[in-house]
Amino acid sequence: MSLDNFKDRNAGVQNYRLLELEPTPTTGWGKFKQVLIRSVKLELLVGLKVTIREMFKALFGGQMHTTKYPFEKLPISPRYRAIHEMKRLLESGHYRCIGCGLCEKICIANCIRIDTRYDENQRKEVSDYTINLGRCIFCGYCAEVCPELAIVHSGRYETASEQRASFTDFADMLTPLDELKKQKEFPGFGAVSPNADENIKKTPLAY
């Protein structure tokens, strides 16, 4: 299944067509004729034909639709807004978050709480970062507003857990250090568009 199927949102332009139905007979003779024609034309067998065709397609044509879910997963759209995730800087491995607090400010469900302090180098450090997933409406504003592309949405949509904290602990949300090489940029909300370079214009100040 390709992603194109997800992108087709044009609900109005499928090839619907009206069936050419004859008017319902009102007289007794008309009804009788309709029954007779329908029985002799064996219209009922068409239904049987369609179902058996689908069965052969499924069994021998490789068109079985079942996804054995816990073992197989369907791809999700890159713009899907699942559980949050914090990215790291690729070079140093340090987290990207600069503790600006914009995500806390913009969050319309008021579910992000961020505490910062100065570390020994007088750099701002995130001392506490929690997301209350009970309140989060997964609107994606935090990812959109983040200037550092630090907080993004991940693809983790299976949100059943014994402890809600396992989704929201700052350390858990960060990409593990040993998987830093596999870290990918989030293409969804707040991400730089693919043609971002073309869109850069000189600001008037340069004149």
Binding site: E54, M55, A58, L59, M64, H65, T66, K68
Partner: peptide
């Protein structure tokens, strides 16, 4: 099983 195959499902597996 048969109903599942006809609906292109796998049925109990």
């Amino acid at each position: 099983k048969i109903l599942a195959f006809i609906q292109r499902r796998l049925g109990p597996m």
